[in-house]
Design a protein around this nucleic acid. Sequence first.
DNA 1: TTGTGTTTTATTGCCTCC
DNA 2: GGAGGCAATAAAACACAA
Length: 324
Amino acid sequence: MAAGRPFSDITTFLRNQTALPTSQPLDSLFLSSSTAPFLGSRSMMSFEGEGGKGCNGSFFRAFDIDENGDECMDEYFHQPEKKRRLSANQVQFLEKSFEEENKLEPERKTKLAKDLGLQPRQVAIWFQNRRARWRTKQLEKDYEILHDSFESLKANYENLLKEKDKLKSEVAHLSEKVLAREKEEEQLKQGERGTKGLQEQDQEPPQRPILDSVSEGEGSKVSCVVGGCKQEDISSARSDILDSDSPHYTDGVHSAVLEHGDSSYVFEPDQSDMSQDEEDNLSKSLYPSYLFPKLEDADYSDPTESSCNFGFSEEDHALWTWEY
DNA sequence: TTGTGTTTTATTGCCTCC
DNA sequence: GGAGGCAATAAAACACAA
């Protein structure tokens, strides 16, 4: 290390001057210097390098202890080597200086040492240790900030989870309602058909498609785009529906009237020419997207929901996609 | 008084920069 | 290669409870 080693030439000089044995620490010479402004009762543990230029004020003032007589000298010489803490004033002064700038340029170091009656190396060490303490504190602060941020994000996340669950149950509730309504309508229509069937048993069965009756019921002609094909375009084939081999629409019950804003959508698809995919697309095109979330939007955290059915059973989902 | 934990001062070895 | 910074560490000083 470049920093001076303890007990350089000046110490040898002192030992010679004071007849101090080599085993006796030199700092004992500098205890209780009443004349040093910041020296207090405990400064300077050792003399070190700085090229033997450690002749600051305190050095010579401390050396004045010789004036106190042999008694005192004896006391000093027989004190064991001890670390000396800086006085409160010295620490205060250094703290102030540290606040201004936590790096220590050589000039400032020399000046501080001179002002405080310390070795420049002591000042340097004090700054080094002070920087280490500052870094530790800084780490603690950073940790606090990160921890608070984490807690906040966690709370936010938990709120979102709650909201998600709430919305989920809402969707389930609404879908149940829709299904119940569907069943109700189905039963109603079946009842009507039963009555009509009895009445018209002797008469020629009507070839009138259900779609017409529904449309008339709405009191207007419905122009509806289904799968890119206008309702009028497919109406020519609708008379076949009742005779179709399709197991889904033979009774006409599943013709649906869907309210969507101001528009009434009447849909009675002829799916006989459609592939399964097309059927799926058709089904989905008639429903709000939230009922058919994209696969990548699905939450797979719950394995029971891996089919992305938003709480509907597989059967329910199949029913929906096929019935409409 | 003593044991123990914390703080402060100082050392050591390594690294980077000029 | 010297100067200075830093992390790790030692050890003295200090605080405090039992």
